[in-house]
Design a protein around this nucleic acid. Structure first.
Lengths: 112, 112
DNA sequence: CATTATACCTCGCGCTGCAAGGTATTGACC
DNA sequence: GGTCAATACCTTGCAGCGCGAGGTATAATG
């Protein structure tokens, strides 16, 4: 029963988080803004999306957390683990295959 | 209260159906196979996905249906309406903006 | 004459994204 | 000193979508 169902278009928030954290340690509130800014407001994931995903990723061993105080601000920083890097690769591969397939339908490529 | 919520990644089945029907009238069973074949098995939407979407699109005036008998086979063909064409354009535009934004995060584009 | 393919349909569930709410601390402003 | 906005964390509950699973009927196949 350890199978992961989920529908074919889901898991994008997870993918974005893993990708951003790969570059440097980040905390939840920072991720919320980073996604909004980097996507130029095309994607606006709120805290109600980000925090639960972070907790799930840590539970699964894809991220590790460490509480730090910076500028008198207490933050929970998340870093990518080896397992997380693997998971990122998998998700990115799936995403690329999926969007490629959709694109080929949208542009009406000649289908053998 | 006639607002359409739905999450930011949903509506892809709808988009694919509208796009395929734009080229020629199609029926449900045909769409199921067309999507699978054109995506080279990357996307496999079953009838439990396709039929409800077709009904919703017709209800919304994006598709019109006509029962026809071909080769002794009774089929419900769906054709794109003007409203449907408009909706297709909207969805395709959104999709393109969305995937562009995701892509820019994935490749790590320099964010002003 | 049974099985497979065609063709339609619906019910019900799981999961995800998300809004909405809640807490606590810091800095700014008057 | 008091108020407000921003920072930073968190959880609950629900709506909606995708989808498996099931059901019907007819035509073709062997």
């Amino acid at each position: 029963m350890a199978e992961n169902n989920s529908n074919f278009m889901s898991g994008v928030p997870e993918l974005l988080i893993l990708r951003l954290v790969r570059e440097k340690e980040m905390y939840g509130y920072e991720l919320v803004q980073a996604i909004r800014e980097r996507s130029r407001d095309a994607i606006a994931l709120g805290e109600g999306v980000i925090y639960p995903v972070l907790h799930a990723l840590e539970r699964d061993g894809a991220l590790s957390s460490s509480r730090k105080t910076v500028n008198g601000r207490s933050r929970v920083y998340y870093a990518l683990t080896a397992a997380g890097a693997q998971r990122l690769d998998d998700l990115a591969g799936n995403w690329s295959r999926l969007t490629g397939a959709i694109q080929s339908i949208l542009v009406g490529v000649q289908h053998a």
